[in-house]
Design a protein around this nucleic acid. Structure first.
Lengths: 146, 146
DNA sequence: AAAAATTATTTGATATATCAATTATTTATT
DNA sequence: AATAAATAATTGATATATCAAATAATTTTT
């Protein structure tokens, strides 16, 4: 039976799913490295794959605000995962450089992300995942164009 | 082609979907009432349906931490949406009471939640929604039992 | 009944989210 | 070239997320 309250709708299943997934991620990450968050780790992995990426591009990739990225990176610099330099070709931009500690962390944590995904998607078929993705993108586009 | 980076996976579609949905919600709410957030509004609607609910139960319903609920309610009391009393039968609990302003707000905003859902789920069939919900709950249970 | 365990809420600390405004730089327009 | 518009990043303010610890009240155990 359909509930009238917002909480009973599929949109809250989406909310719940992502929250539970984030908990699993954080838990698995902290087994290996204990001073890093899921988001910081994501930034690290993205930077590792693409050294020249700007903060704004990182923000878009992980669906975050520029302001959030600034602060996430600030903390990562403090914790010696990254250093920052001004981009010489466009002085508005910053060049983000992974430190040795950062590089080691990527190596340690990349497999954890693999594990997280496998944990979350266990027993769900490739077709189901594809369908899930398709419906979610429909929702995303509905919201964006509203 | 499947990406190896975490960002390319369906789990990030989930994240993106819920973020876009929340933006739509906030936007539609603020057209009508401009000093309330999505979460505060949810608490209001839940309380309106069930006067005797405790903070912990509210927290569970909307997948939030108890600490978050305490602070959300604090702000709602400050803004005169709620008042708080100690529960006489169990003095650990608080009794939350919707004010007149709160009641008016529920009346104003309940239809907005309906609209938000319709906006997000537009063009998605009942079968697809059911399937979406089923897969999401599989993910939720995978994460919970991991 | 006293001690121990459980429960509901709060508080502190830190991280992230969101919006608006600001700064610095670059690009486009006139 | 000077002005205006656009872009990248930062900062401030406020809300929420999360964990751990603390309070206070209630239940269970002994």
């Amino acid at each position: 039976m359909k509930q009238k309250t917002p909480t009973g709708t599929v949109l809250y299943s989406i909310e719940q799913a992502i929250k539970e997934y984030r908990k699993v991620c954080q838990k698995n990450i902290q087994k290996i490295v204990n001073d890093i968050t899921v988001d910081q780790c994501l930034v690290l992995i993205i930077l590792n794959d693409n050294e020249k990426i700007s903060q704004i591009e990182i923000a878009k990739l992980i669906f975050k605000d520029n302001a959030s990225i600034t602060r996430i990176i600030e903390l990562m610099v403090k914790k010696d995962y990254l250093t920052r330099e001004i981009d010489e070709f466009d002085k508005r931009k910053t060049k983000l450089i992974i430190t040795e500690k950062g590089k080691k962390t990527v190596v340690l944590l990349s497999p954890v992300f693999e594990l997280n995904r496998e944990t979350a998607l266990d027993g769900i078929s490739a077709e189901e995942i594809e369908l899930l993705d398709k419906i979610l993108h429909k929702i995303i586009s509905n919201c964006k164009t509203s």
